[in-house]
Design a protein around this nucleic acid. Sequence first.
DNA 1: GGAAAGAGTGGTTACTCACTCACTATCTGA
DNA 2: TCAGATAGTGAGTGAGTAACCACTCTTTCC
Lengths: 187, 187
Amino acid sequence: MKTERRQLSTAEERRETVLRTAIGAFAARGYFGTTTTEVAKAAGISQAYVYRLFPNKEALFTAVVEHCFVRVRAALEGGAANAESSAPEAVLDSMGDAYARLISDNDLMLVQLHAQAAAVSEPAIREAVRAGYARSVEYVRGASGGSEEQVQQFFATGMLCHLLVSIDAEAISAPWTRTLTAGITHY
Amino acid sequence: MKTERRQLSTAEERRETVLRTAIGAFAARGYFGTTTTEVAKAAGISQAYVYRLFPNKEALFTAVVEHCFVRVRAALEGGAANAESSAPEAVLDSMGDAYARLISDNDLMLVQLHAQAAAVSEPAIREAVRAGYARSVEYVRGASGGSEEQVQQFFATGMLCHLLVSIDAEAISAPWTRTLTAGITHY
DNA sequence: GGAAAGAGTGGTTACTCACTCACTATCTGA
DNA sequence: TCAGATAGTGAGTGAGTAACCACTCTTTCC
């Protein structure tokens, strides 16, 4: 009779595991298309327990989105710290590079895209997305010292990346994909 | 006994009605979040008849997306025709203005955003989105004669608009929203 | 050792969804 | 005029799905 003792985590640890693993689950099909069962499976727990850790699906998704924004901001901070000079161009460039590195696995970016889509109809998610971008924009502005145009341009490029990733543009080599991907680093 | 005769449409007419009205339905909650019953209600027909007109939900959504891209391209063509000069900057500017005018009701743009999100997991939708952007990029490049950078910039700005609309950025007046919306026309 | 608290699950419920089918109402033209 | 074709629907069906609850297993601490 093997006993194979089960090691329990604290609820807080589990919540963090769920937040980390749920990124992969939500990345594919977004808020409406992803089931809580899939999230549970990705975290290695039962579906019922998801509802012990989060009050409902919306709160779970919102928490995942916030988690993503935190990671993105951390990457931007890392990029800013690594800039070769303190000129706005250099800082923005280094931030962009750090961002590109962070999202080389794509899931973080896809969750942001799906969050944006869900924000249209779900007020709580919209609030989370707004707050996330609010802090990001302010951070980029402050840390880079770039002009309004430069900061705007920085985020516009980020949005273009969402498109490129969502349609897997790098998989097709055509003039139009080369135009859209030109000059965009990716790892 | 009132007879109130019912006027039947041809199936083709109905299909077009559905395409037009389904934009409003899908704009709110996207591919996974919108039910075929909602689409039927918007078109004023029974849910069962939706399945006479389209083989399945995916084909319906794909057709709606294609319809949106056609309308966007028509707007771009109109913009190009109205440009004050044939300088790339003037043409791109006029196209951007026409685009802004077209999507002042937001639904077209939201469908494009949701299509992008659904493209991640649904191959048929991804194909439609790729084809749509392929034609749009080629058209903008050809009609404007702009450089690669200018064309890329044009689409990046479009993607930024998706973000601004999805989180209803114009509803909040804060430095970060002013940064992101700066210089972007809207009607 | 044992009781209280916390971690975790199986099973179910009430409901929704995409999709189908048998059927009726309307139209067309010979 | 009426038969064949086409427009359109009511009433399902099976497969999920979010959320819940009663329950067990594990840890902690006296």
